[in-house]
């Protein structure tokens, strides 16, 4: 399917804050088999200088993927979600996510290309605290597969 390149540069309003819970971080760390004490034990995290348990590096995708529904479900852009494949993912961290963070996402469409009948959409999500402190930026490229 073809995506409209005029959407490049469009940004979306900040999302409602996501409250990062200590048990959610523990559950996520357990699900990926990450046993480092800083992911589970607040004392271990404090020993490393963090206020509470630290999230593993890919944890922010829970927040950014939910936020990117703003774009995927934008009727004007018209992405067919059943044809979406995850192409690339990147995170640039200012600091790790920690329990107690209240995270707000701002989505920006950085690139749209159409090639071989497929659409390629790159979005950047700037994740910051509700107070405006930057935490992590996430880039996600999805492929919207064309009809075979």
């Amino acid at each position: 399917m073809s995506l409209d390149p005029s959407f490049v540069g469009r940004s979306y309003p900040p999302t409602a804050p996501y409250q990062v819970g200590r048990e959610k971080i523990r559950e996520f760390a357990t699900a990926i088999g990450a046993t480092d004490p800083a992911y589970h034990d607040p004392e271990a995290a404090r020993a490393l200088g963090h206020p509470d348990v630290v999230a593993p590096p890919t944890f922010p995708v829970l927040v950014t993927m939910a936020a990117s529904r703003q774009i995927i479900e934008d009727p004007a852009l018209g992405v067919d979600y059943s044809r979406v494949v995850h192409g690339d993912q990147r995170f640039a961290y200012t600091r790790p996510v920690v329990a107690g963070d209240e995270l707000v996402c701002v989505n920006i469409i950085e690139e749209i290309t159409n090639r071989g009948g497929h659409g390629f959409l790159t979005t950047r999500t700037d994740v910051s605290t509700a107070d405006g402190e930057p935490v992590v930026a996430a880039w996600s490229k999805i492929v919207v597969r064309g009809e075979a």
């Binding site: 088999g33 630290v54 590096p57 690339d88 790790p96």
Partner: peptide
């Protein structure tokens, strides 16, 4: 999930759970 496992490998190599400053992959 694959990226998360690679993240475990990276933090193990780094020797710290909070040492990653940039991390990207193509599936």
């Amino acid at each position: 999930f694959t990226m998360a496992l690679v993240g475990r490998a990276v933090t193990t190599w780094a020797g710290a759970p909070d040492a990653v400053v940039d991390f990207g992959v193509r599936f």
